[in-house]
Computed example of a mutant assay.
Amino acid sequence: MSLSTARPDPLTVEVEDLIGTVVARYYEEYERAAARHALTGPQARILALLTPAPLPMRQIARALKCEPSNVTGMIDRLVARGLVERRLDQDDRRVKLAAATERGAAISRHLRESLDFARVPLAGLTDAERLTLRDLLRRMLA
């Protein structure tokens, strides 16, 4: 029997459930924090993606796992609010980039700083425990 078709053991099931609960809590808190800024969760995630550097629409769509046409509408709404601006890519002038404005980046940073659900319990772990957790999560995602 291959690993993918093997019946999961109780410990694996418990770990999967815990991961699911952590993800659900993260998104619940993220949605609440976004709503305080009159943003949807996906709009807030776009701001988070754009805060480090401008991105093309297709790359944003891939990161959000949605169609580029959906991203265009969300970007339009963020542009109308002065949180995002469109720019031409200097390397390929056919490509339009979306970039967070200063105000959009500030809101994105505030959202990130307001997510306490994981920060509080993580603070109770030692540096070594947080490093181990980080490394295990990286291995799972590799």
Rank of each mutant, 00 (worst) to 15 (best):
D89M: 06
V120P: 01
D127H: 13
E129A: 14
R45G: 12
S2P: 06
G124P: 00
S2N: 08
R86I: 07
R134E: 12
D17M: 10
R103F: 02
Y27E: 10
P56A: 11
R81I: 03
D89S: 13
T12A: 15
T12I: 15
D127V: 15
M57G: 05
R119Q: 14
R103A: 13
R45F: 13
D17L: 14
D91Y: 05
P68D: 06
A35V: 02
Y26E: 11
L83P: 00
C66I: 12
R134Y: 13
I46E: 02
A48H: 07
A24R: 06
L88I: 14
T51Y: 07
L136H: 07
L49V: 04
A34Y: 06
H37M: 02
L97V: 09
E129H: 02
R77V: 02
L39W: 04
A105V: 05
T51M: 10
P10R: 06
A106W: 00
S108T: 04
D127T: 15
E14K: 07
S114M: 01
L3V: 14
P8M: 09
R139Q: 15
L78C: 06
D135V: 06
R77Q: 05
L78W: 03
A44D: 12
D89P: 07
L47A: 04
I19S: 08
A33S: 15
R81T: 05
A106R: 05
L88A: 13
G82C: 09
R25N: 11
A118E: 11
Q90L: 13
V95I: 10
V22W: 00
T72I: 01
A6S: 14
L18K: 03
D135H: 07
S114A: 10
G73C: 04
A24K: 03
S69Q: 09
V13N: 03
D92S: 12
P68C: 10
E28F: 04
I19T: 09
H110G: 13
A99S: 06
L64W: 07
L111D: 06
R87W: 08
S114C: 01
N70E: 09
M1F: 09
R77I: 02
A63D: 08
A61T: 03
D127P: 08
H37P: 01
V120I: 14
R45H: 14
V71T: 07
R134G: 15
E129R: 04
S69T: 09
D91L: 14
P121Q: 06
R86E: 08
L83C: 02
L136D: 11
R7M: 08
R32K: 10
P42S: 13
P42I: 12
L88E: 12
L49K: 01
E16I: 14
E113P: 00
L115F: 03
Y30A: 15
A98L: 02
R58H: 01
H110T: 15
P8H: 03
P8Q: 09
G82W: 06
V23Y: 01
T51F: 04
C66K: 02
V23E: 08
M74H: 09
L83D: 02
L78V: 07
D17C: 08
A61I: 03
